[in-house]
Design a protein around this nucleic acid. Structure first.
Lengths: 229, 229
DNA sequence: CCTACCGATCGGTAGG
DNA sequence: CCTACCGATCGGTAGG
């Protein structure tokens, strides 16, 4: 939106072009800093430094820190939505779709949990509500659509027969996408590489952890009653 | 540790008693604030106010803000460890153990994700390493022990035969324990109540989401290839 | 354990 | 878009 002057190609850019470019530079710097460190840990001066501006210059493009953060998040969520909808549209079978979702998500967004916290705790009520809606539309809805398809196809268990509702499945998958901890790549039980991680999550989500002979003993959700040896 | 004077019961408390009580009051106030809002969002003055002290008085009991936070977390992690080990010791069958874990965890700790972030990003290298170890010993190890038992009992699939390693399963379960989002109790696909939540997580972790007739088609982890209708 | 106070840093504004 | 600067708040210290 608001891209008027594409007339003079290669000519000296108009003031509007320059302003738009500066705005983009700010958004890019802010995205990197906010995503890595969270809302509170990033100062407006750091963002300005990262794109060669003075701190007060930011306020020419964004009314305050919160609005800048909201703009970053809305851009980020839009990228997610596009990627997830693209994966969904490919209809490849649930296992492969989930694998692609898992590979796609963490590259765009390192620390999902931090984002949730900031949305819920660092913004005023109005901005919070706005971003909450964007989050549900961009992440929950596309993921839930994938699970809903699986149910309608009969590949996944229906919620009416002990299955998990699509929206709930979306939230649980999102939870598992958060990286184990810190960045010490020690023993994570094989969760180190993205590929292993994807396989484990898909395997657990679709097949469960039960051994085949133990299956359908506990179908109603009661005690398994297994003892030692 | 360091509880010397239990001699005079009911008498005027010694200075050491008073000091220990003050320390506990600080820890209690700090725990509530840190757990609800995160490390950075809580000021030392807020903590002092919450227990009727002036801010500099905190430094009689803790060398700095970071040490106070570390003390809170270590106490919290210890509570977790005790609870999880108790559940494990009950050996009730994997389904019931998981249910109890899910019911136990969020009451003690509302926002696990925030804790991870603070440990990784807000503390110096030394404190980070110390708490990382405590976290793995208090949360990952007990959870992994539950899954390891299940594998040894033959209830859970062995990692050598497509199962998920215990430590990886522990991390995935932890991820799913984080509450959906904010505190708007709207549509969460049935994840609203703790009890429903527990049932869904257990059902997905143990049985998977696949419909029974679709099972073992995708066992090797390749495409399911389901199309519409 | 209090009063008083420190330097640093924060988000944001004035004025050009 | 810059310089200069604001009040507020931060974690922590001095000194008693």
């Amino acid at each position: 939106m608001e891209v008027r002057t594409l007339a003079r190609r290669g000519a000296t850019p108009s003031r509007a072009d320059e302003s738009a470019e500066t705005r983009q530079a700010i958004l890019r710097a802010a995205r990197e800093l906010f995503m890595a460190n969270g809302y509170r840990a990033v100062s407006t001066r750091q963002i300005a430094d990262a794109c060669g501006l003075t701190q007060p210059a930011l306020y020419r493009h964004f009314s305050d820190k919160q609005e800048l953060y909201a703009a970053v998040l809305e851009e980020e969520l839009d990228t997610m939505r596009l990627g997830l909808e693209r994966i969904h549209a490919r209809n490849l079978g649930i296992a492969e779709q989930l694998r692609q979702v898992i590979r796609f998500m963490p590259t765009t967004r390192q620390d999902l949990a931090q984002m949730f916290h900031d949305i819920a705790h660092e913004l005023d009520q109005e901005t919070h509500a706005r971003l909450q809606v964007a989050f549900e539309r961009s992440m929950i809805a596309p993921l839930a659509a994938i699970f809903a398809d699986g149910i309608h196809n009969g590949v996944l268990r229906d919620p009416a027969h002990g299955g998990v509702p699509p929206v709930a499945a979306a939230y649980l998958l999102l939870g598992m996408l958060q990286r184990p901890t810190g960045h010490t790549d020690r023993e994570r039980g094989g969760l180190a590489s993205l590929e292993q991680r994807a396989e484990m999550i898909v395997s657990m989500m679709l097949h469960g952890l039960l051994a085949s002979d133990a299956r359908d003993n506990t179908a109603a959700g009661h005690t398994t009653g297994s003892r030692d040896t």
